[in-house]
Design a protein around this nucleic acid. Structure first.
Length: 964
RNA sequence: GGGCGGGUGGUGGAAUUGGUAGACACGCUAGACUCAAAAUCUUGUGAGCAUUCGCUCGUGAGGGUUCAAGUCCCUCCCCGCCCACCA
């Protein structure tokens, strides 16, 4: 018998598939279409690594599965060839990126084929070829023509090593994404003229469509956070003694009465205008300091820094004059670059206020509707008042509680108009209720809490907002009080008794807050307003709208939606990218390169070093640079920026559908049939790339070239492969695993692929286990041997009933494997097939008597294993007598009659504990099963002498006898 | 700090969503084949007790609901990932 030898069969079939074009998709086919792909590959000299092996196998399995099911299945292949690494390599080695790609890409061909991926090589694309980037440039032109591309000067992240601008997402922890080791310098900020795509114009629709996507949930959430929509308002603050107004953005206009100061970002344009002369020097020094500060430093030091401008503004709600500060915790890039600080209700503002001893004013109170006897009543007048509650302590630390009927609470009461402040109210209330007059100290110890209740004494509902004050008595000297009149009683109690004695929950809360030493005036939740004039007791949600509306009527506010997402900066000051199709004319300004002159060919150079003035190496290509203006014919220069490679990858799936089209980026008719991509997967780029692809796709639908507004129907964010110790594989650690080496060791691509899909659920990270591939190799060998033994055996038996168990073993697995692959549960699909092979080993003991049954079973097994292990499957498929490939239209069908057995094994529990099993007919009723169970010896022992009080029967599964 | 995932044998992971916990695989154990080794095949493998039918415990910790909890509810602990001064 021939042994399983992947080294022999894998190259053999790879050659056959290649020559016959087995995986070439017919885009015009009348079959239902299916397109599965993994994220674009960036080719580098290192070749494919284990992460590639993982990613591309995931989509390959899906594509193969659908192809076997009869779909016209397309598994495309292409190269994201532009980008920094190839250029950096060129700078170092002098080998041009064009040349290195010309050798790297063919080496990838070999590796892809060795992995057995079912790519359609006829439709291969590469982004660095003029036939591709002509259309990348064309997209820029279309964006420009539709008003979505513009040039602007911006402070931009700048990598001091590459001398290039970085996108926000390319800055990680303050450093360039490619230079993030401890020794690398941080990214800087520089003013640079840039081209932008107005992705923010699509922010809302990109956000709204997320919910309906069949994507990994974490990625959907990441996209939402990335877009970062917040609803709020812009409010104007008049600067005192000045014409200027400061516009702030806030999501909490309801807290405006608590805005006790303003903060501007150091870069804010008003800073120089409103700075008082005596502060000027200090402020300039502060701005200098913050500009030098890197993101890393800003994040490391959490303490707030800032400086007072000397200027004041008027709070448009309260009319108070409040100081204007500058601080770097306010970002120039978000909102208006200025905030109203509400230290009582925002953690950052609170920190700042504490650091600089600025006033804190609580304006939102948590709110409670009291239950029980004091519940508010209907059709009763509601009055509103502020209250105080005093936690009175003597020198020993005992606490004074007041009892009134069934209620026990702290001493407290309303704040009367004659009380000039709350402290006066506390003093008055303590004297009136208790008679104590000598108070050592008073301090607010819990935030103001509001509530509504029914007051029997007044026969009205009362809304009250009150704070808790710690009152420490100096001595026990007292005067006549209400307590002496018998209105209520007073009692000194130990601190540990207080909680259990208090009858009002809000007093319990206040006490808890006090005992926890919680902050006395901050509250970050929702509630009702307090200290806010006519808005008092209004719920925060309502006040948000009302206050903005009232201020808007005076022209001082406007409702505003803000996004954290910024426009897409598409300029790169690099050589190795698609040139931006713009010509700068001194008289006419920037002009688009006319369509008939596309592509703007990237000239071949010898020196790829950026020109150092912030422009790319293209600035030195004089012949290329100098052109005539397409409008006036005068002297002009080409744009030297190239396009962000994210543009290349934002539409490549469309080019896959029409890779050789000379007239158009893609054919709309074909694209409308094939879009959206049915299955997409990857382990990176959850935000930027996916969002840009969605944006560009939506743009195409807007301009009428495409029907589907979303590019990816299903997206699986799969896990990565790490070393056995959980650390990332990396070249510097020298711990990489080379997939080709595994294959060459003799295990073959099939075993490797199967292991990667089996090791763990696709969405989890996999730790590389050196024993894993040998394990799946063993499984494939067993299948191989099973088929070979069957083919060599001579036994026959013509009775159809013989060995029908074989079908009972296989058909449920056919059902499960298809369901599991559809649901991306590849690991359990493989486990089910392994189990099935093990079952077949046992069933072959008496020989392969019923040849028809065995033929059917083995064909099904071979076909099911084919998406994971395509080579062995093809070999065995032909061995089993086929003359066409297993990889098309071979998926087995299961027969319902082999799914459910006519007998069932029922587990018998007594009082929920497993005590035995009984074999019964599948349709046996509860009584019959109970009878059978009672007859079972061990069950009998457990129920003997006891009464069965209840019986639960789950048909075919479990019988639970409850005894007493 | 915010958000999202998770904690199940020696290991990776199963468990039809409340119904026999540990499928499948790795590793380990014993045996067969072999002069021997590898490969292959056959055993056994959560812990403890009993080594005979069995019994007790067991899914991060503690409590609860239920005939029945890895799964549901409450309290707490730990780990991973992503985002992070976004007003």
């Amino acid at each position: 018998m021939q042994r399983y030898n992947p080294k022999e069969i894998e190259p053999k079939w790879q050659k056959v598939w290649d020559e016959t074009g087995l995986y070439t998709a017919d885009l015009q086919s009348s079959r239902p279409k299916y397109i599965a792909m993994s994220m674009f590959n960036y080719p580098s000299g290192a070749g494919i690594h284990i992460g590639h092996a993982m990613n591309y196998t995931v989509s390959d399995v899906k594509a193969r599965f659908k192809r076997q099911q009869g779909f016209e299945s397309y598994h495309p292949v292409g190269w994201d060839a532009f980008g920094l690494p190839a250029e950096n390599y060129a700078i170092k080695s002098g080998v041009s990126p064009q040349e290195s790609m010309a050798t790297i890409i063919p080496s990838y061909h070999k590796q892809y084929k060795a992995m057995g991926w079912s790519n359609d090589w006829e439709k291969e694309i590469a982004t660095h070829l003029p036939e591709y980037y002509k259309w990348t440039q064309w997209i820029f032109v279309q964006m420009h023509k539709h008003g979505l591309a513009y040039q602007d000067s911006r402070m931009q992240w700048w990598c001091p090593i590459d001398n290039t601008v970085l996108a926000n997402e390319q800055v990680i922890d303050g450093k360039c994404w490619r230079h993030d080791s401890p020794n690398d310098p941080p990214a800087e900020k520089r003013e640079v003229k840039q081209w932008f795509f107005k992705i923010t114009e699509y922010a809302d629709e990109l956000l709204e469509a997320i919910d309906d996507l069949d994507w990994t949930e974490s990625v959907k959430l990441a996209q939402k956070n990335w877009i970062g929509k917040s609803m709020g308002a812009e409010v104007e603050f008049q600067v005192v003694d000045s014409e200027s107004r400061v516009t702030v953005f806030t999501t909490r206009p309801d807290t405006i009465y608590g805005a006790t100061f303003l903060v501007l970002a150091p870069e804010h344009e008003l800073v120089p205008r409103i700075t008082m002369t005596d502060q000027q020097a200090a402020i300039e020094a502060y701005i200098q300091k913050t500009q030098k500060k890197t993101e890393v430093e800003r994040q490391a030091e959490k303490e707030k820094t800032g400086i007072f401008t000397g200027a004041y503004a008027i709070n448009p709600a309260s009319g108070q004059e409040i100081p204007i500060w500058i601080a770097d915790y306010v970002l120039a890039s978000y909102g208006t670059g200025a905030i109203m600080a509400v230290p009582a209700h925002d953690e950052r503002d609170h920190e700042f206020a504490q650091a600089f001893e600025l006033p804190i004013q609580q304006v939102v109170a948590s709110y409670e509707i009291y239950g029980g006897a004091t519940a508010p009543r209907e059709n009763v007048e509601t009055i509103q008042r502020n209250t105080i509650d005093a936690i009175i302590l003597d020198k020993e630390g005992k606490v004074l509680l007041q009892a009134e009927g069934e209620h026990v609470h702290f001493v407290g009461g309303g704040v009367d108009p004659e009380d000039k402040n709350n402290e006066a109210a506390v003093r008055r209330e303590v004297r009136e209720e208790t008679g104590y007059i000598n108070i050592a100290s008073i301090r607010q110890v819990a935030p103001v809490v509001a509530g509504v209740q029914y007051r029997h004494t007044k026969q009205k509902n009362q809304q009250a907002a009150g704070g808790f004050y710690e009152v420490v008595l100096e001595n026990d000297e007292k005067v006549h009080s209400e307590a002496d009149d018998g209105k209520h009683t007073l009692e000194w109690v130990d601190k540990d008794k207080v909680t259990s004695l208090l009858t009002w929950s809000w007093h319990q809360d206040g006490w808890r807050h006090y005992m926890e030493g919680g902050n006395s005036q901050t509250y970050f939740g929702e509630g009702v307003l307090t200290n806010s004039d006519m808005y008092n007791f209004m719920p925060t949600s309502e006040a948000r709208e009302k206050i903005v509306a009232d201020l808007a009527a005076k022209g001082l506010a406007i409702e505003k939606v803000n996004y954290r997402m910024n426009d897409w900066s598409v300029s790169r000051q690099r050589y190795w990218g698609a040139p931006i199709p713009i010509i700068h004319c001194l008289t006419c300004g920037p002009q688009l390169v006319p369509d008939d002159q596309l592509p703007v060919i990237l000239p071949e150079l010898k020196d790829f070093q950026p020109s150092g003035d912030g422009r790319s190496a293209l600035a030195r290509a004089k012949d290329w640079l100098e052109v005539d203006c397409p409008k006036c014919g005068g002297k002009a220069e080409r744009e030297t920026d190239t396009l962000d490679t994210y543009i290349c990858s934002s539409w490549y799936f469309l080019r896959y559908l029409d890779p050789h089209n000379q007239q158009h980026a893609f054919n709309s008719h074909i694209a409308n049939k094939w879009m959206p991509v049915d299955f997409y997967n990857g382990a990176d780029h959850a935000t930027a790339h996916m969002l840009y692809a969605r944006f560009v796709t939506r743009f195409f639908t807007k301009i009428g070239l495409l029907e589907s507004p979303e590019p990816f129907k299903e997206f699986l964010f799969n896990g990565k492969v790490t070393a056995h110790d959980g650390r990332m594989f990396s070249k510097s650690k020298g711990n990489g695993i080379d997939p080709l080496e595994i294959i060459d060791q003799g295990y073959g691509a099939d075993a490797l692929r199967t292991y990667l899909m089996f090791a763990s659920p696709l969405e989890l990270w996999t730790r590389w286990d050196a024993q894993g591939v040998p394990g799946t190799y063993r499984f494939l060998s067993r299948l191989w041997n099973l088929v070979q033994e069957f083919l060599e055996s001579r036994t026959t038996n013509h009775e159809p009933q013989v060995q029908e168990e074989v079908l009972w073993a296989v058909h449920p697995v056919i059902k499960k494997v298809a369901e599991d692959i559809d649901g991306n549960r590849y690991n359990t699909a493989i486990a089910a097939m392994m189990g099935c092979v093990n079952d077949l080993y046992k069933l072959k003991e008496p020989g392969f008597g019923n040849r028809e049954v065995w033929q059917q079973a083995l064909e099904a097994m071979v076909a099911m294993v084919a998406p994971f292990a395509p080579h062995i499957a093809e070999e065995l498929w032909f061995c089993l007598g086929h003359s066409t490939s297993v990889h098309r239209d071979s998926w087995p069908k299961y027969d319902e009659k082999y799914l459910a057995s006519d007998t069932a094994t029922v587990a018998v529990q007594v009082n929920g504990k497993l005590r035995g099993q009984v074999e019964v007919a599948a349709d046996a009723d509860e009584a019959a099963v109970t009878e059978a169970a009672k007859a079972s010896e061990n069950v009998h022992a457990h129920i003997e002498g006891k009464a069965i009080v209840k019986t639960i029967y789950v048909p075919g599964k479990i019988l639970n006898l409850v005894v007493r």
